[in-house]
Amino acid sequence: MTILKDANVLFSEEEKSILQEVMNISFGNAVAELAEIIDVLIRLSVPSVTLVSGKDFQRDLANKIEITPPYNSIEQSFSGKLNGYVFMIFPEGSEKKLTALLGDYQEHLDPVEETRLEKGALIEIGNILTGACVGKLVDVLDENVSFTPPRLEMASSPSWQTPLNLIGQESVVISVKTEFKFMAHDINGYFFLITNEESLHWFKKALHTFMEQF
């Protein structure tokens, strides 16, 4: 994998560290408020921030996922002053637990209905988690964004094609990884937030503005 020589120029260690803390704050608030909507306790890992090139992004993502495929991948993009993508990875079998968690199961379901409900649960939880985390992040940074509908893929190796087309091979992306665990439901997964190079400038400014309040 190419080590980005000038990565520090684009986004300094200092800025990475601020972003990490801002992520920590916004995700923490997000899950606390999420608990009001879905009755869950979520344990979040320390967010880790890396810079990768567009062409290495897919490999980088796959390397960071430590659960065995096949898995459920939910992909969603957001746009505004901050543009990017969220990828959420849930292990196989989680769709059943999530459907139960939402209380969506009904009696006497045929397999087709059941699959439809399970896919629905994954998409809905994905959409709400993305909305909560990204929503809070831009909220902390005093901005709003708009979202596209989530896309679900249940596969051994998700394609993750969309961002490649839009991010571009040569560009630099900020990749934030957080592991989360739905306590008491034995559901764990990954949350990746990817932003494109155009957002970098706004991001830096917003982060510095955030620090200025102290």
Binding site: N24, I25, S26, F27, G28, N29, V31, A32, A35, L41, I42, L44
Partner: peptide, 9 residues
């Protein structure tokens, strides 16, 4: 001092 402000926490 934490960002994890879930009630249960």
């Amino acid at each position: 001092v934490s960002a994890d402000v879930q009630k249960q926490v």
